[in-house]
């Protein structure tokens, strides 16, 4: 690893850690009902929203009612986004006169944005009108992120409440998450991005003169080029903060109008992990023991740094085949060195690898380099981060509730070892919680493996793979790992915009999102109904380094056992083939 890489990674981690406490504390206050400073300004709007929507803020919900509200909102979200996409040809704010999105493409994108995945099988600037981008996709970026945070807060209430039949009011949690957290942060970030050159306009595509005229395939001289523009900054800000990841442009965050300067790149990268990391502190604050939040944040950071090091080192070492040919791939004053295929020269190895690991750790999915072009080992780390269940930071809310499920499994296993009833944060963990935890872990995993099996077993699936052999398997495995764990990044190298993949990946996104949320809320309801027990000599402390190590072991063993055979057939065998 170069000194430059160590400096950049160190700065990034320090910047994240510096934001964790203030933002985490602020978010904990927001969900406790008091938003510092913004209360005075936004409280009237909040009351107005409740009045218009007929929400009774005093009425709390049981876990079933809470889950029904999540399902109702998500159903309406999917159907409304689908309708806007299909009708965009006759709707306003479509200066490029784009036609309706195809039915299977509309289904995939609707499900993708409602489930906080933002998998994109389409090219944004040539498929979606400005109206679709603004009113369908960007709105879902806010809603789906706020749903994830609301479910997390409901689970935290399950730990903090005693003998309670309720876990909060979903509509209040949703509104407060958007109004006091996502909207202010997005507004600030969008304004900074505009100042850096991220485009924000409703004008038609721009026709500009080429600096170097060229000729097309038929020999005609080409002197101008159309440059796509649009309301990008407002979408980019929330796509990063809400761990959505869906780019306004097809090239996503490698596009110069979406990520134009070093400062824009750093802030967008920071925004990916900002809320997921800070929510750990909010968790500690809300359960009344900040050490619990730091322990989970420590576990996430350790996995993140190890897999980041693997990716940076693998990419910096370069392609083994080129090394065997005697090509110099070492970093020097004249070249960045390493494997630069699929990477922008302005980002280089470190920024590209850091973004790839952050975006897959955080269930974000935006990319500034093409993961398909990474070395097999460098591509394995981002893929495995998704396969771990998106619990290393993960999506906003969803990452931490996934991590809390792993914490429940860890205390259960520790309880089995010493023969005592497991407990976490003063709540006894029973058979029901373990059944729910099993569902949360198994369902996305099953979707990844069964989906990949379908992809490589069917003619339609195989026909979409661009590369033969193990790399082709990696392309399909990555796609289903991304969809089932609601990440949304694409490995590339797979023609996924077909009814086969749009349908199958859409189903994977739905199962990976909602069939995880339902058991998590069931766990919240079950825990809230229990009484708090005082910790005794047989209680496993859950804020110590020992617990962090146990937790990491459980996450890695589950991830390794579930995916090792598939990874062995894909990136592992490909790395061995390249090395020999």
């Amino acid at each position: 690893m170069t000194n430059n890489a160590i400096l950049q990674i160190g700065l990034f981690v320090l910047a994240i850690l510096a934001c964790v406490k203030p933002l985490g504390l602020y978010m904990a206050r927001v969900y406790s009902g008091h938003a510092p400073v913004l209360d005075r300004v936004l409280r009237p709007f909040e009351r107005l929203i409740y009045r218009l929507c007929g929400v009774n803020t005093e009425q709390e919900m049981g876990w079933r009612q809470y889950a029904e509200a999540v399902i109702a909102l998500s159903l309406i979200s999917c159907v409304s986004v689908y309708a806007v996409e299909r009708l965009q040809g006759v709707l306003p704010l479509n200066p490029d006169l784009l036609p309706a999105v195809s039915p299977d493409g509309a289904f995939n994108a609707a499900v993708s944005f409602a489930s906080n995945t933002n998998w994109q099988s389409y090219s944004g600037e040539t498929t979606m009108s400005y109206l679709t981008q603004m009113t369908a996709l960007t709105v879902q970026n806010f809603l789906s992120a706020a749903v994830g945070m609301a479910v997390l807060i409901a689970l935290i209430r399950g730990f903090t409440r005693e003998n309670s039949a309720t876990i909060g009011n979903f509509w209040v949690d949703l509104t407060r998450g958007i109004l006091y957290i996502l909207l202010p942060l997005s507004l600030i970030l969008a304004l900074i991005l505009v100042s850096q050159g991220v485009v924000q306009t409703l004008r038609l595509h721009q026709q500009v003169a080429l600096l170097e005229p060229t000729v097309d395939n038929e020999g005609h001289r080409v002197v101008t080029q159309q440059i796509a523009v649009g309301p990008a900054a407002s979408q980019v800000a929330i796509k990063q903060l809400g761990t959505n990841g869906g780019g306004f442009f097809n090239a996503n965050s490698s596009h110069p109008l979406e990520n134009p300067t070093p400062l824009a790149s750093f802030l967008e990268l920071l925004a990916i992990l900002l809320i997921p990391a800070s929510l750990c502190y909010s968790f500690g604050e809300l359960v009344g023991d900040r050490r619990q939040g730091w322990a989970l944040l420590g576990a996430m950071t350790m996995v993140f740094l190890v897999l980041l090091a693997v990716t940076v080192v693998a990419e910096q070492r370069g392609n083994p085949v080129l090394s065997q040919l005697g090509i110099d791939q070492a970093a020097s004053a004249l070249q960045s060195g390493g494997n630069m295929e699929g990477k922008e020269t302005r980002f280089g190895i470190t920024d590209s690898a850091l973004w790839a690991v952050a975006t897959t750790a955080a269930s974000n999915g935006s990319v500034n380099s093409m993961h398909d072009c990474y070395t097999p080992l460098g591509g394995l780390a981002p893929m495995w981060l998704m396969q771990l269940g998106e619990v290393v930071f993960g999506g906003v809310g969803s990452g931490l509730y996934g991590m809390l499920v792993f914490a429940i499994v860890t205390v259960f296993l520790a309880g089995l070892m010493v023969g005592r009833t497991p407990e976490y944060l003063g709540k006894k963990i029973g058979a029901f919680e373990m059944k729910m935890a099993s569902l949360v872990i198994i369902l996305p995993c099953a979707m990844v493996l069964l989906g990949t099996a379908c992809g490589v077993a069917c003619d339609q699936g195989r026909g979409a793979i661009f590369n033969p052999g193990p790399h082709g398997l990696s392309e399909v495995l990555y796609a289903f790992s991304s969809a089932s764990n609601n990440n949304g990044s694409a490995f590339a190298g797979l023609a996924a915009n077909s009814p086969f993949y749009n349908g199958l990946l859409g189903l994977a996104m739905l199962v990976g999102r909602y069939w995880v949320i339902i058991p998590v809320l069931a766990t919240a309801g079950s825990l809230a109904a229990k009484k708090q027990v005082a910790s005794g000599p047989g209680t496993l402390p859950t804020h110590t380094p020992l617990f962090v190590i146990l937790l990491l072991a459980v996450i890695i063993v589950v991830g390794a056992l579930s995916y090792f055979p598939a990874l062995a057939l894909g990136p592992v065998v490909e790395q061995l083939l390249l090395s020999n």
Binding site: I71, L75, Y82, P103, F107, V111, A431
Partner: peptide, 30 residues
């Protein structure tokens, strides 16, 4: 074709509601 994809979305959330009630039943059994 729109009917097919919309029916798919509605069917998924319908099954999700069933799952919710199934888990609720499972909890009461426990």
């Amino acid at each position: 074709m729109d009917i097919v994809w919309l029916a798919g979305i509605i069917a998924f959330f319908g099954v999700s509601l069933l799952m919710l009630h199934l888990l609720s039943f499972l909890r009461s059994e426990d």
